[in-house]
Design a protein around this nucleic acid. Sequence first.
DNA 1: ATACGCTTGCGCAATGCCGCC
DNA 2: CGGCGGCATTGCGCAAGCGTA
Lengths: 233, 233
Amino acid sequence: MSIRKELTEESTQTEKKMSESQSSVIQEYSPTASATFTSFSHTLTHATTTLASNPDHLEPSTNHMPQMEGYSQCLDAHGLVRASSNRMAEQMMGLSYLSYAPCINPSSTETVGQQSHMLQQDFSNFLLPHPPGPLRNHPLKRGLTKDSMEYRLRRERNNIAVRKSRDKARRRIHLTQQRALQLQEENYRLQVLIGQLTQELDTMKNILSQRHLRPRDHCTSELRDISYISHFT
Amino acid sequence: MSIRKELTEESTQTEKKMSESQSSVIQEYSPTASATFTSFSHTLTHATTTLASNPDHLEPSTNHMPQMEGYSQCLDAHGLVRASSNRMAEQMMGLSYLSYAPCINPSSTETVGQQSHMLQQDFSNFLLPHPPGPLRNHPLKRGLTKDSMEYRLRRERNNIAVRKSRDKARRRIHLTQQRALQLQEENYRLQVLIGQLTQELDTMKNILSQRHLRPRDHCTSELRDISYISHFT
DNA sequence: ATACGCTTGCGCAATGCCGCC
DNA sequence: CGGCGGCATTGCGCAAGCGTA
Protein backbone atom coordinates (compact mmCIF):
# COMPACT_ATOMS: atom_id res chain seq x y z
CA MET A 1 0.00 0.00 0.00
CA SER A 2 2.69 2.39 0.86
CA ILE A 3 4.25 1.58 -2.44
CA ARG A 4 1.18 2.74 -4.20
CA LYS A 5 1.19 5.80 -2.05
CA GLU A 6 4.71 6.52 -3.11
CA LEU A 7 4.02 6.28 -6.78
CA THR A 8 0.70 7.87 -7.36
CA GLU A 9 1.99 11.42 -7.77
CA GLU A 10 -1.34 12.74 -8.77
CA SER A 11 -3.20 14.16 -5.91
CA THR A 12 -3.54 14.94 -2.38
CA GLN A 13 -0.39 14.08 -0.58
CA THR A 14 1.16 17.02 -2.29
CA GLU A 15 -1.29 19.29 -0.61
CA LYS A 16 0.63 19.21 2.59
CA LYS A 17 4.02 20.57 3.06
CA MET A 18 5.78 17.29 2.68
CA SER A 19 7.52 16.55 -0.62
CA GLU A 20 10.72 15.82 1.00
CA SER A 21 10.85 12.10 1.67
CA GLN A 22 8.57 11.80 -1.31
CA SER A 23 11.28 10.72 -3.66
CA SER A 24 12.90 8.56 -1.09
CA VAL A 25 13.32 4.87 -1.51
CA ILE A 26 10.35 2.63 -1.24
CA GLN A 27 9.70 1.90 2.33
CA GLU A 28 9.72 -1.60 3.54
CA TYR A 29 6.53 -3.17 4.55
CA SER A 30 5.73 -2.40 8.12
CA PRO A 31 2.23 -2.97 9.36
CA THR A 32 1.95 -0.93 12.44
CA ALA A 33 -1.21 -1.92 14.11
CA SER A 34 -2.25 -5.42 13.10
CA ALA A 35 -4.68 -5.42 15.88
CA THR A 36 -6.07 -8.87 16.09
CA PHE A 37 -5.36 -12.03 14.34
CA THR A 38 -8.04 -11.60 11.79
CA SER A 39 -7.20 -8.00 11.19
CA PHE A 40 -3.66 -8.87 10.46
CA SER A 41 -4.71 -11.43 7.94
CA HIS A 42 -6.84 -8.76 6.40
CA THR A 43 -3.82 -6.57 6.06
CA LEU A 44 -1.86 -9.30 4.47
CA THR A 45 -4.60 -9.97 2.02
CA HIS A 46 -4.68 -6.39 0.93
CA ALA A 47 -0.96 -6.01 0.72
CA THR A 48 -0.16 -9.06 -1.30
CA THR A 49 -2.91 -8.57 -3.78
CA THR A 50 -2.61 -4.84 -4.12
CA LEU A 51 0.92 -5.05 -5.26
CA ALA A 52 0.07 -7.78 -7.66
CA SER A 53 -3.06 -6.87 -9.48
CA ASN A 54 -4.33 -3.43 -8.71
CA PRO A 55 -4.05 -1.38 -11.89
CA ASP A 56 -4.59 1.87 -10.09
CA HIS A 57 -1.12 3.27 -10.24
CA LEU A 58 -0.79 5.34 -13.34
CA GLU A 59 2.42 7.01 -14.17
CA PRO A 60 1.85 9.78 -16.65
CA SER A 61 3.29 8.01 -19.65
CA THR A 62 1.41 4.75 -19.77
CA ASN A 63 -0.63 3.99 -22.77
CA HIS A 64 -4.05 3.31 -21.39
CA MET A 65 -6.72 5.51 -22.93
CA PRO A 66 -5.12 6.00 -26.30
CA GLN A 67 -6.79 9.32 -26.91
CA MET A 68 -5.93 12.37 -24.82
CA GLU A 69 -3.33 13.59 -27.29
CA GLY A 70 -4.15 16.91 -28.83
CA TYR A 71 -6.57 17.96 -26.12
CA SER A 72 -9.16 19.02 -28.64
CA GLN A 73 -12.13 16.76 -28.66
CA CYS A 74 -11.41 14.11 -26.15
CA LEU A 75 -13.94 15.17 -23.61
CA ASP A 76 -17.53 16.13 -23.58
CA ALA A 77 -19.28 19.11 -22.14
CA HIS A 78 -18.57 17.94 -18.64
CA GLY A 79 -14.87 17.43 -19.00
CA LEU A 80 -15.08 13.71 -19.08
CA VAL A 81 -13.46 11.26 -21.34
CA ARG A 82 -16.25 9.19 -22.66
CA ALA A 83 -15.90 5.91 -24.37
CA SER A 84 -18.46 4.84 -26.90
CA SER A 85 -19.85 1.37 -26.37
CA ASN A 86 -18.97 1.29 -22.77
CA ARG A 87 -18.93 -2.34 -21.88
CA MET A 88 -16.86 -3.39 -24.82
CA ALA A 89 -14.24 -0.73 -24.38
CA GLU A 90 -13.77 -1.64 -20.78
CA GLN A 91 -13.59 -5.27 -21.55
CA MET A 92 -10.66 -4.47 -23.75
CA MET A 93 -8.66 -2.22 -21.55
CA GLY A 94 -9.76 -3.16 -18.07
CA LEU A 95 -8.32 -6.37 -16.81
CA SER A 96 -7.95 -8.53 -13.78
CA TYR A 97 -10.41 -7.19 -11.30
CA LEU A 98 -10.41 -10.63 -9.87
CA SER A 99 -11.06 -11.46 -6.35
CA TYR A 100 -8.79 -10.21 -3.66
CA ALA A 101 -9.77 -12.62 -0.98
CA PRO A 102 -11.13 -15.81 -2.46
CA CYS A 103 -12.45 -16.97 0.86
CA ILE A 104 -16.09 -17.68 0.21
CA ASN A 105 -17.01 -19.73 3.20
CA PRO A 106 -18.71 -17.55 5.74
CA SER A 107 -18.34 -19.31 9.01
CA SER A 108 -19.46 -16.40 11.17
CA THR A 109 -18.38 -17.85 14.43
CA GLU A 110 -17.50 -14.55 16.04
CA THR A 111 -19.41 -11.98 17.96
CA VAL A 112 -18.14 -8.47 17.55
CA GLY A 113 -17.23 -8.94 13.91
CA GLN A 114 -17.76 -6.01 11.71
CA GLN A 115 -16.46 -6.62 8.22
CA SER A 116 -16.98 -10.31 8.15
CA HIS A 117 -15.05 -10.52 4.95
CA MET A 118 -11.87 -10.50 6.92
CA LEU A 119 -12.97 -13.07 9.38
CA GLN A 120 -13.25 -16.17 7.32
CA GLN A 121 -10.13 -17.98 8.45
CA ASP A 122 -8.05 -17.19 5.45
CA PHE A 123 -4.99 -18.88 6.83
CA SER A 124 -3.81 -19.33 3.28
CA ASN A 125 -2.43 -15.86 3.48
CA PHE A 126 -0.04 -16.93 6.14
CA LEU A 127 1.38 -19.46 3.78
CA LEU A 128 2.25 -16.83 1.24
CA PRO A 129 5.72 -15.33 1.29
CA HIS A 130 4.79 -12.14 3.03
CA PRO A 131 7.22 -9.37 3.84
CA PRO A 132 8.68 -9.62 7.30
CA GLY A 133 6.61 -7.17 9.20
CA PRO A 134 7.73 -6.35 12.71
CA LEU A 135 4.48 -7.82 13.98
CA ARG A 136 4.48 -5.84 17.15
CA ASN A 137 1.30 -6.98 18.70
CA HIS A 138 0.24 -4.16 20.88
CA PRO A 139 -3.44 -4.98 20.87
CA LEU A 140 -4.76 -1.77 19.32
CA LYS A 141 -2.72 0.52 21.50
CA ARG A 142 -4.92 0.05 24.52
CA GLY A 143 -7.82 -2.04 25.54
CA LEU A 144 -9.51 -1.32 22.23
CA THR A 145 -11.91 -4.20 22.44
CA LYS A 146 -14.29 -2.81 19.83
CA ASP A 147 -16.79 -2.29 22.61
CA SER A 148 -14.91 0.34 24.51
CA MET A 149 -15.89 3.92 24.36
CA GLU A 150 -12.35 4.70 23.32
CA TYR A 151 -12.73 2.60 20.22
CA ARG A 152 -16.09 4.13 19.35
CA LEU A 153 -14.71 7.60 19.79
CA ARG A 154 -11.80 6.85 17.54
CA ARG A 155 -14.06 5.32 14.95
CA GLU A 156 -16.46 8.21 15.03
CA ARG A 157 -13.70 10.76 14.69
CA ASN A 158 -12.27 8.85 11.80
CA ASN A 159 -15.66 8.63 10.16
CA ILE A 160 -15.99 12.37 10.36
CA ALA A 161 -12.52 12.79 8.93
CA VAL A 162 -13.33 10.41 6.13
CA ARG A 163 -16.46 12.29 5.20
CA LYS A 164 -14.57 15.52 5.24
CA SER A 165 -11.73 14.18 3.16
CA ARG A 166 -14.03 12.70 0.58
CA ASP A 167 -15.98 15.86 0.35
CA LYS A 168 -12.79 17.75 -0.22
CA ALA A 169 -11.79 15.29 -2.91
CA ARG A 170 -15.12 15.78 -4.61
CA ARG A 171 -14.70 19.51 -4.55
CA ARG A 172 -11.23 19.20 -5.93
CA ILE A 173 -12.35 16.96 -8.76
CA HIS A 174 -15.14 19.31 -9.57
CA LEU A 175 -12.83 22.27 -9.61
CA THR A 176 -10.37 20.50 -11.83
CA GLN A 177 -13.07 19.73 -14.31
CA GLN A 178 -14.36 23.25 -14.25
CA ARG A 179 -10.87 24.49 -14.74
CA ALA A 180 -10.31 22.21 -17.68
CA LEU A 181 -13.46 23.52 -19.28
CA GLN A 182 -12.45 27.11 -18.68
CA LEU A 183 -9.02 26.46 -20.10
CA GLN A 184 -10.52 24.83 -23.14
CA GLU A 185 -12.76 27.78 -23.83
CA GLU A 186 -9.92 30.20 -23.23
CA ASN A 187 -7.78 28.15 -25.51
CA TYR A 188 -10.30 28.39 -28.27
CA ARG A 189 -10.53 32.13 -27.87
CA LEU A 190 -6.78 32.47 -27.97
CA GLN A 191 -6.53 30.41 -31.10
CA VAL A 192 -9.15 32.51 -32.79
CA LEU A 193 -7.25 35.59 -31.80
CA ILE A 194 -4.05 34.12 -33.11
CA GLY A 195 -5.74 33.43 -36.38
CA GLN A 196 -6.89 37.01 -36.64
CA LEU A 197 -3.51 38.39 -35.75
CA THR A 198 -1.78 36.12 -38.20
CA GLN A 199 -4.10 37.09 -40.95
CA GLU A 200 -3.67 40.74 -40.24
CA LEU A 201 0.05 40.33 -40.09
CA ASP A 202 0.04 38.60 -43.44
CA THR A 203 -1.85 41.46 -44.92
CA MET A 204 0.61 43.88 -43.46
CA LYS A 205 3.52 41.93 -44.81
CA ASN A 206 2.00 41.76 -48.21
CA ILE A 207 1.45 45.47 -48.18
CA LEU A 208 4.93 46.21 -47.04
CA SER A 209 6.53 43.87 -49.51
CA GLN A 210 4.50 45.29 -52.31
CA ARG A 211 5.37 48.79 -51.22
CA HIS A 212 8.94 47.77 -51.02
CA LEU A 213 8.90 46.52 -54.57
CA ARG A 214 6.63 49.09 -56.02
CA PRO A 215 7.31 52.83 -56.07
CA ARG A 216 4.60 54.16 -53.75
CA ASP A 217 1.14 55.75 -54.06
CA HIS A 218 -0.82 52.59 -53.13
CA CYS A 219 -0.33 53.33 -49.53
CA THR A 220 -3.64 54.96 -48.73
CA SER A 221 -5.83 52.44 -50.45
CA GLU A 222 -3.98 49.54 -48.93
CA LEU A 223 -4.27 50.95 -45.46
CA ARG A 224 -7.94 51.46 -46.02
CA ASP A 225 -8.23 47.83 -47.00
CA ILE A 226 -6.94 46.49 -43.77
CA SER A 227 -8.40 49.09 -41.51
CA TYR A 228 -11.39 46.95 -40.63
CA ILE A 229 -9.15 44.20 -39.40
CA SER A 230 -6.87 46.16 -37.16
CA HIS A 231 -9.13 46.90 -34.27
CA PHE A 232 -6.35 45.87 -31.92
CA THR A 233 -4.25 48.66 -30.63
CA MET B 1 -29.44 9.89 -2.49
CA SER B 2 -31.18 9.95 -5.78
CA ILE B 3 -31.52 13.66 -5.36
CA ARG B 4 -27.80 14.01 -5.18
CA LYS B 5 -27.49 11.83 -8.18
CA GLU B 6 -29.86 14.05 -10.07
CA LEU B 7 -28.01 17.21 -9.32
CA THR B 8 -24.37 16.37 -9.52
CA GLU B 9 -23.98 16.92 -13.25
CA GLU B 10 -20.33 16.36 -13.09
CA SER B 11 -19.36 12.88 -13.82
CA THR B 12 -20.14 9.47 -14.74
CA GLN B 13 -23.78 9.16 -15.46
CA THR B 14 -23.13 11.06 -18.62
CA GLU B 15 -20.81 8.39 -19.79
CA LYS B 16 -23.66 6.20 -20.80
CA LYS B 17 -26.12 6.96 -23.43
CA MET B 18 -28.66 8.46 -21.13
CA SER B 19 -28.99 12.24 -20.88
CA GLU B 20 -32.59 12.18 -21.49
CA SER B 21 -34.37 11.89 -18.16
CA GLN B 22 -31.46 13.80 -16.74
CA SER B 23 -33.30 17.05 -16.40
CA SER B 24 -36.40 15.38 -15.19
CA VAL B 25 -38.02 16.15 -11.93
CA ILE B 26 -36.52 15.00 -8.71
CA GLN B 27 -37.56 11.53 -8.02
CA GLU B 28 -39.41 10.79 -4.91
CA TYR B 29 -37.78 8.76 -2.25
CA SER B 30 -38.16 5.09 -2.95
CA PRO B 31 -35.90 2.67 -1.24
CA THR B 32 -36.23 -0.51 -3.11
CA ALA B 33 -34.63 -3.21 -1.12
CA SER B 34 -34.56 -2.36 2.58
CA ALA B 35 -33.76 -5.90 3.31
CA THR B 36 -33.89 -6.25 7.03
CA PHE B 37 -35.01 -4.12 9.85
CA THR B 38 -31.60 -2.80 10.63
CA SER B 39 -30.79 -2.25 7.06
CA PHE B 40 -33.84 -0.15 6.63
CA SER B 41 -32.88 2.02 9.52
CA HIS B 42 -29.51 2.34 7.90
CA THR B 43 -31.14 3.56 4.75
CA LEU B 44 -33.17 6.06 6.62
CA THR B 45 -30.14 7.37 8.37
CA HIS B 46 -28.34 7.94 5.14
CA ALA B 47 -31.25 9.50 3.37
CA THR B 48 -32.27 12.00 5.97
CA THR B 49 -28.79 13.20 6.68
CA THR B 50 -27.57 13.22 3.14
CA LEU B 51 -30.23 15.59 2.07
CA ALA B 52 -29.59 17.81 4.99
CA SER B 53 -25.91 18.23 5.40
CA ASN B 54 -23.89 16.80 2.59
CA PRO B 55 -22.20 19.72 0.84
CA ASP B 56 -21.11 17.70 -2.11
CA HIS B 57 -23.39 19.02 -4.75
CA LEU B 58 -21.77 21.99 -6.39
CA GLU B 59 -23.47 23.68 -9.23
CA PRO B 60 -21.01 25.57 -11.39
CA SER B 61 -21.95 29.02 -10.23
CA THR B 62 -21.66 28.78 -6.51
CA ASN B 63 -19.10 30.86 -4.74
CA HIS B 64 -17.03 28.32 -2.93
CA MET B 65 -13.33 28.77 -3.55
CA PRO B 66 -13.32 32.44 -4.46
CA GLN B 67 -10.31 32.09 -6.70
CA MET B 68 -10.49 30.04 -9.89
CA GLU B 69 -11.28 33.07 -12.01
CA GLY B 70 -8.63 33.88 -14.55
CA TYR B 71 -7.13 30.41 -14.65
CA SER B 72 -3.62 31.66 -14.14
CA GLN B 73 -2.14 30.68 -10.82
CA CYS B 74 -4.80 28.86 -8.97
CA LEU B 75 -3.26 25.43 -9.11
CA ASP B 76 0.05 23.89 -8.53
CA ALA B 77 2.13 21.61 -10.63
CA HIS B 78 -0.30 18.78 -10.15
CA GLY B 79 -3.42 20.58 -11.19
CA LEU B 80 -4.74 20.85 -7.68
CA VAL B 81 -6.17 23.77 -5.92
CA ARG B 82 -4.21 24.08 -2.80
CA ALA B 83 -5.11 26.10 0.19
CA SER B 84 -2.42 27.53 2.32
CA SER B 85 -2.77 26.78 6.01
CA ASN B 86 -4.82 23.75 5.45
CA ARG B 87 -6.63 23.20 8.68
CA MET B 88 -7.77 26.75 9.05
CA ALA B 89 -9.03 27.09 5.53
CA GLU B 90 -11.07 23.97 5.86
CA GLN B 91 -12.41 25.00 9.16
CA MET B 92 -13.79 28.05 7.43
CA MET B 93 -15.32 26.54 4.38
CA GLY B 94 -15.97 22.97 5.43
CA LEU B 95 -18.81 22.57 7.81
CA SER B 96 -20.96 20.04 9.56
CA TYR B 97 -19.21 16.77 9.11
CA LEU B 98 -20.98 15.71 12.22
CA SER B 99 -22.05 12.26 12.92
CA TYR B 100 -24.55 10.60 10.71
CA ALA B 101 -25.58 7.97 13.17
CA PRO B 102 -24.99 9.23 16.70
CA CYS B 103 -25.41 5.81 18.16
CA ILE B 104 -22.26 5.22 20.14
CA ASN B 105 -23.29 2.34 22.29
CA PRO B 106 -21.93 -0.81 20.81
CA SER B 107 -24.16 -3.57 21.94
CA SER B 108 -22.75 -6.22 19.64
CA THR B 109 -25.29 -8.83 20.47
CA GLU B 110 -25.49 -10.21 16.98
CA THR B 111 -23.60 -12.87 15.16
CA VAL B 112 -23.40 -12.35 11.44
CA GLY B 113 -23.33 -8.60 11.73
CA GLN B 114 -21.20 -6.90 9.23
CA GLN B 115 -21.34 -3.16 9.48
CA SER B 116 -22.15 -2.91 13.13
CA HIS B 117 -22.76 0.79 12.72
CA MET B 118 -26.21 0.02 11.52
CA LEU B 119 -27.02 -2.39 14.22
CA GLN B 120 -27.03 -0.28 17.28
CA GLN B 121 -30.73 0.17 17.85
CA ASP B 122 -31.07 3.56 16.30
CA PHE B 123 -34.80 3.67 16.69
CA SER B 124 -34.56 7.41 16.82
CA ASN B 125 -34.61 7.40 13.07
CA PHE B 126 -38.07 6.01 13.09
CA LEU B 127 -39.22 9.03 15.01
CA LEU B 128 -38.02 11.39 12.34
CA PRO B 129 -40.41 12.48 9.61
CA HIS B 130 -39.09 10.18 6.97
CA PRO B 131 -40.41 9.91 3.45
CA PRO B 132 -42.92 7.13 3.03
CA GLY B 133 -40.89 4.35 1.57
CA PRO B 134 -42.77 1.40 0.19
CA LEU B 135 -41.06 -0.92 2.66
CA ARG B 136 -41.43 -3.97 0.57
CA ASN B 137 -39.66 -6.53 2.58
CA HIS B 138 -38.68 -9.14 0.13
CA PRO B 139 -35.98 -10.78 2.16
CA LEU B 140 -33.07 -9.96 -0.16
CA LYS B 141 -34.65 -11.46 -3.23
CA ARG B 142 -34.06 -15.07 -2.28
CA GLY B 143 -32.79 -17.02 0.58
CA LEU B 144 -29.96 -14.54 0.88
CA THR B 145 -29.09 -15.47 4.39
CA LYS B 146 -25.61 -13.99 4.20
CA ASP B 147 -24.28 -17.49 4.38
CA SER B 148 -25.62 -18.75 1.11
CA MET B 149 -23.43 -19.18 -1.86
CA GLU B 150 -25.80 -17.00 -3.81
CA TYR B 151 -25.12 -14.11 -1.46
CA ARG B 152 -21.40 -14.62 -1.59
CA LEU B 153 -21.45 -14.78 -5.34
CA ARG B 154 -23.42 -11.57 -5.56
CA ARG B 155 -21.11 -9.89 -3.11
CA GLU B 156 -18.02 -11.03 -4.89
CA ARG B 157 -19.30 -9.90 -8.25
CA ASN B 158 -20.19 -6.56 -6.81
CA ASN B 159 -16.81 -6.23 -5.22
CA ILE B 160 -15.19 -6.80 -8.56
CA ALA B 161 -17.48 -4.25 -10.14
CA VAL B 162 -16.69 -1.77 -7.42
CA ARG B 163 -13.00 -2.15 -7.89
CA LYS B 164 -13.40 -1.74 -11.59
CA SER B 165 -15.56 1.32 -11.26
CA ARG B 166 -13.24 3.00 -8.82
CA ASP B 167 -10.30 2.27 -10.99
CA LYS B 168 -12.10 3.84 -13.86
CA ALA B 169 -12.89 6.86 -11.75
CA ARG B 170 -9.26 7.19 -10.79
CA ARG B 171 -8.21 7.02 -14.40
CA ARG B 172 -10.76 9.64 -15.30
CA ILE B 173 -9.60 11.99 -12.57
CA HIS B 174 -6.04 11.48 -13.58
CA LEU B 175 -6.83 12.19 -17.20
CA THR B 176 -8.71 15.32 -16.30
CA GLN B 177 -5.79 16.61 -14.33
CA GLN B 178 -3.39 15.78 -17.10
CA ARG B 179 -5.63 17.54 -19.52
CA ALA B 180 -5.83 20.60 -17.34
CA LEU B 181 -2.07 20.73 -17.18
CA GLN B 182 -1.74 20.31 -20.92
CA LEU B 183 -4.29 23.02 -21.49
CA GLN B 184 -2.49 25.32 -19.14
CA GLU B 185 0.82 24.85 -20.89
CA GLU B 186 -0.81 25.26 -24.26
CA ASN B 187 -2.49 28.35 -22.99
CA TYR B 188 0.77 29.83 -21.92
CA ARG B 189 2.31 29.12 -25.27
CA LEU B 190 -0.61 30.69 -27.05
CA GLN B 191 -0.39 33.78 -24.91
CA VAL B 192 3.29 34.14 -25.61
CA LEU B 193 2.57 33.78 -29.28
CA ILE B 194 -0.13 36.39 -29.07
CA GLY B 195 2.29 38.72 -27.41
CA GLN B 196 4.80 38.23 -30.16
CA LEU B 197 2.24 38.68 -32.88
CA THR B 198 0.85 41.78 -31.25
CA GLN B 199 4.26 43.27 -30.90
CA GLU B 200 5.14 42.52 -34.46
CA LEU B 201 1.87 43.95 -35.60
CA ASP B 202 2.51 47.10 -33.65
CA THR B 203 5.84 47.45 -35.31
CA MET B 204 4.25 46.97 -38.68
CA LYS B 205 1.63 49.53 -37.94
CA ASN B 206 4.17 52.02 -36.82
CA ILE B 207 6.16 51.48 -39.93
CA LEU B 208 3.17 51.80 -42.16
CA SER B 209 1.88 54.86 -40.44
CA GLN B 210 5.28 56.47 -40.59
CA ARG B 211 5.63 55.57 -44.21
CA HIS B 212 2.21 56.91 -44.79
CA LEU B 213 3.14 60.23 -43.29
CA ARG B 214 6.64 60.45 -44.58
CA PRO B 215 7.64 60.53 -48.24
CA ARG B 216 9.53 57.27 -48.58
CA ASP B 217 13.14 56.02 -48.62
CA HIS B 218 13.06 54.52 -45.11
CA CYS B 219 11.52 51.42 -46.43
CA THR B 220 14.55 49.20 -46.60
CA SER B 221 15.94 50.02 -43.22
CA GLU B 222 12.59 49.65 -41.56
CA LEU B 223 12.02 46.30 -43.10
CA ARG B 224 15.42 45.24 -41.92
CA ASP B 225 14.50 46.32 -38.43
CA ILE B 226 11.53 44.06 -38.13
CA SER B 227 12.90 41.17 -40.08
CA TYR B 228 14.12 39.37 -37.01
CA ILE B 229 10.67 39.39 -35.52
CA SER B 230 8.72 38.06 -38.42
CA HIS B 231 9.70 34.47 -38.37
CA PHE B 232 6.06 33.51 -38.64
CA THR B 233 4.79 32.89 -42.08
C1' DA C 1 7.00 8.97 21.39
C1' DT C 2 2.31 9.56 21.21
C1' DA C 3 -1.90 11.23 19.66
C1' DC C 4 -4.54 13.19 16.18
C1' DG C 5 -6.22 14.20 11.64
C1' DC C 6 -6.00 13.06 6.69
C1' DT C 7 -5.92 9.90 2.88
C1' DT C 8 -6.98 5.72 0.71
C1' DG C 9 -8.28 0.95 -0.51
C1' DC C 10 -11.69 -2.10 0.50
C1' DG C 11 -16.32 -4.37 1.32
C1' DC C 12 -21.24 -3.62 1.98
C1' DA C 13 -25.65 -1.97 0.72
C1' DA C 14 -28.63 0.90 -1.96
C1' DT C 15 -29.59 2.48 -6.18
C1' DG C 16 -29.19 3.40 -11.14
C1' DC C 17 -29.02 1.84 -15.70
C1' DC C 18 -29.58 -1.45 -19.38
C1' DG C 19 -30.51 -5.47 -21.97
C1' DC C 20 -33.47 -9.22 -22.24
C1' DC C 21 -37.64 -11.91 -21.88
C1' DC D 1 -45.24 -2.97 -21.50
C1' DG D 2 -43.07 -4.37 -17.03
C1' DG D 3 -40.36 -7.26 -14.24
C1' DC D 4 -35.68 -9.34 -13.72
C1' DG D 5 -31.06 -10.05 -13.65
C1' DG D 6 -26.78 -8.11 -14.45
C1' DC D 7 -23.14 -4.63 -14.00
C1' DA D 8 -22.16 0.26 -12.62
C1' DT D 9 -22.14 3.95 -9.39
C1' DT D 10 -22.02 5.89 -4.92
C1' DG D 11 -22.17 6.84 0.08
C1' DC D 12 -20.69 4.85 4.04
C1' DG D 13 -17.76 2.67 7.72
C1' DC D 14 -13.48 0.18 8.73
C1' DA D 15 -8.65 -0.24 8.94
C1' DA D 16 -4.10 0.91 7.67
C1' DG D 17 -0.71 4.13 6.67
C1' DC D 18 1.17 8.74 6.67
C1' DG D 19 2.44 13.21 8.36
C1' DT D 20 2.46 16.43 11.80
C1' DA D 21 2.11 18.72 16.24
